[in-house]
């Protein structure tokens, strides 16, 4: 007889949370107020005087200051993907939030949530990073050969959305030429890494399937080259795209509601089910 009565597991929870990132030194008379801070061991005051945003970003997430190649790669990533297209669902959400006069503090978090999706969003970056990390030791042509049976049976819509070979797919029924252009910015440079190179090889092999880069695939490969784990991919993608989303939302905020399209009643077709 199963007894469902509740009994605490008395798990050994720690008394304090811990962090490798940030250290605060309190003022003498009040243990809640801060006198001095260190980031990853460096005096924060000194960091603010000598480091730029990219260096601080790298240090914050990866624990060390970047070398020249690492810095160039991260900087190119941050500027290249600073904003999704205004036609991306997350940008459209930001504009809708702004135009709908949502409290401005909600524009960014709500649109970032949409930028976390499995199609052209953060979740796709994470899953692509997992795919790359699991397979980048195998030559792309061989890896694809192994996938042949799976691809033959795969749902074609999911394949096009980049949700079978995560990060690689189609947009509007074709290989996205703009994503290919963006990928080229990162390839063949002194800072190009092995994961991105592997993905470029994979893209070549995927041509017969009419599958190419999605922007999420490029971000995923670069994040792998920078040394991030897959679970960091979703949030980092959102963070990288955040400035563009907020910019679109803020631009929309002062506009009147008639400055945005609204589907006419005669074009709104309630399908009889």
């Amino acid at each position: 007889m199963v007894n469902r009565s509740v009994k605490s597991r008395k798990e050994p929870f720690v008394k304090k949370a811990s962090t490798n990132i940030w250290q605060e030194q309190p003022v003498e008379h009040n243990p809640y107020l801060v006198e001095k801070t260190h980031l990853r061991g460096y005096d924060f005051d000194e960091l603010t005087q000598h480091c730029d945003f990219t260096e601080m970003f790298y240090l914050l997430f990866l624990g060390e200051l970047p070398n020249r190649n690492q810095k160039q790669l991260l900087q190119l990533l941050l500027v290249t993907f600073i904003s999704p297209s205004p036609r991306h669902p997350a940008s459209r959400s930001a504009m809708s939030l702004g135009g709908g006069k949502t409290f401005p503090q909600h524009i960014l978090p709500a649109s970032l949530g949409i930028a976390g999706g499995e199609y052209l969003g953060g979740r796709q970056v994470q899953l692509c990073m997992q795919l790359i990390q699991d397979n980048h030791q195998i030559i792309p042509a061989l890896w694809l050969e192994e996938q042949e049976a799976r691809l033959a049976e795969a749902d074609k819509a999911l394949l096009a959305e980049g949700r079978i070979i995560y990060g690689f797919g189609q947009q509007y029924g074709e290989i996205d030429p703009y994503a290919s252009l963006l990928a080229d910015k990162f390839l063949g440079k002194s800072f190009s890494g092995p994961h991105l190179t592997w993905c470029a090889g994979l893209v070549e092999e995927l041509k017969p399937y009419c599958i190419g880069w999605l922007q999420t695939g490029i971000v995923a490969a670069v994040l792998c080259d920078l040394g991030f784990p897959p679970h960091a991919g979703a949030g980092l993608f959102q963070l990288i795209q955040a400035p563009g989303l907020l910019a679109h939302g803020l631009e929309a905020y002062p506009k009147s509601r008639t400055e945005f399209p609204f589907v006419r009643d005669e074009d709104y077709d309630i399908v009889d089910t």
């Binding site: 811990s18 490798n20 250290q23 809640y32 801060v34 624990g63």
Partner: peptide, 9 residues
């Protein structure tokens, strides 16, 4: 401040 344990470098 001391209630967050710093475990970094």
């Amino acid at each position: 401040c001391e209630d967050i344990e710093y475990t970094g470098p």
